[in-house]
Design a protein around this nucleic acid. Structure first.
Lengths: 222, 222
DNA sequence: TTCGTCATGTAATGGGTTACATGATTAC
DNA sequence: GTAATCATGTAACCCATTACATGACGAA
């Protein structure tokens, strides 16, 4: 019981499913791995962890070394205070959340996290979420176009420019979704011709290369 | 006194500076004119209006017809309950807010509204806000690139794609800002060659055309 | 020994939504 | 006359941040 946001709960369960972690590290992962979509502070995270423990979805363990690290290598056995590990019920709970495709799933606040865990999501759910998001954005576009048509002449240049840029952003996301949806479909069809069953269920992704070049800098946290 | 958000206060003062309005209409304008950037509910707006009145920045007037409408024309003299009008102090307050260029001005929550009222903003403030925003985004890009460089191999395709798309969005906004900044500068220089003083202070804007075609549909409000 | 980062937490506060209550006016 | 929309408001709640308090550990 006890709702506790949704987004955070989902993200925490998802990250911990991959491997146990303590709060501090969890927060860093939250604020980077999940793209630009969300940032949480300790004041949000720690209380949330507690309620998840209370729900029986996590257990606290006194941590020593971050695991999977050679004795005194990588981070020199940094002592972690409390390591959170997903319980069986927690795993179940996450699975349940993963399979949900309620209208929430494609709203702004949720879509990002949902997408971040698409790797663990079944293809049909992925499709429903992507398509849901797309039509959500399309109806938003309709509204914007309509309101713009109604008001364009009494708006000054800057307001107009703002609106234009806003619309273009949305249009751009729609195009992105189109690509994704298409390649998900292609991924499904792909299986037909050769009937090969490599891996298990990996849908296709466009496969861009990021324009990233190395550039040291530390993370958020003011 | 009494802080009350900032964004809403600013937007309300700004909209009312153009013309008096009642709350209901004000909210619609807020949720459309200001682009995709913000949406407020009555539960937020009305209490805010009250505190603005308490601060002496607005006065309530019993409204009859929305003004500037021929007797029984346009909207058939819709009876408005309470019309809010900006006081002299309110105007002053707005002016003061307009001229502020604190780091807040270019954060996500504020930038949109600030931009929406660029029409009333002096060119140097506009420049500072645009440039502030740009460097804000650029440092964000640096962080994203850095974190991506650190973690790229242990991220799955979807997370990577999410990150990539996020970065591209930011890069796109930077390009947009570059164009705006450039045309602001051009606007300033423009004056040199001919020394013409048409109008007063209108900076240059790129002047795109929107892709809008008429398409009836009503506004938000669930 | 002091500073920076790792690490965990809590109380106060803020900013906002939801759901509800109420009623006038217009369009059918 | 009844449904939709216009119009104003409030109380309960929610989600999250800020600021603070505490302390261990490693490096200079």
């Amino acid at each position: 019981m006890s709702r506790r946001s949704g987004v955070l709960e989902f993200a925490v369960l998802g990250l911990l499913r991959e491997s146990p972690m303590h709060g501090y590290e969890l927060r860093k992962r939250l604020n980077t791995s999940l793209g630009v979509f969300r940032a949480f502070s300790y004041g949000t995270l720690y209380p949330c962890l507690k309620t998840l423990v209370a729900n029986g979805w996590l257990i606290e363990e006194p941590g020593s070394a971050p695991k999977d690290a050679p004795p005194a290598a990588t981070l020199a056995g940094r002592r972690a205070k409390i390591v959170y590990r997903l319980t069986a019920e927690g795993k179940e709970r996450f699975e349940e959340l993963l399979s949900q495709t309620g209208p929430d799933a494609w709203e702004d606040e949720h879509f990002g996290v949902r997408f971040a865990f698409f790797g663990q999501t079944s293809r049909d759910v992925r499709m429903r979420v992507l398509e849901g998001r797309r039509s959500r954005l399309e109806e938003r576009l309709d509204k914007m176009r309509a309101s713009l048509a109604r008001t364009r002449e009494r708006l000054d240049d800057y307001t107009l420019e703002l609106q234009r840029h806003g619309m273009e952003s949305v249009e751009r996301e729609v195009r992105w979704l189109n690509e994704l949806i298409e390649s998900e479909r292609a991924g499904r069809d792909q299986r037909r011709p050769a009937e090969q069953d490599t891996s298990e269920d990996t849908g296709g992704l466009p496969r861009h290369r990021g324009s990233t070049r190395p550039d040291p800098s530390d993370d958020t946290d003011k």
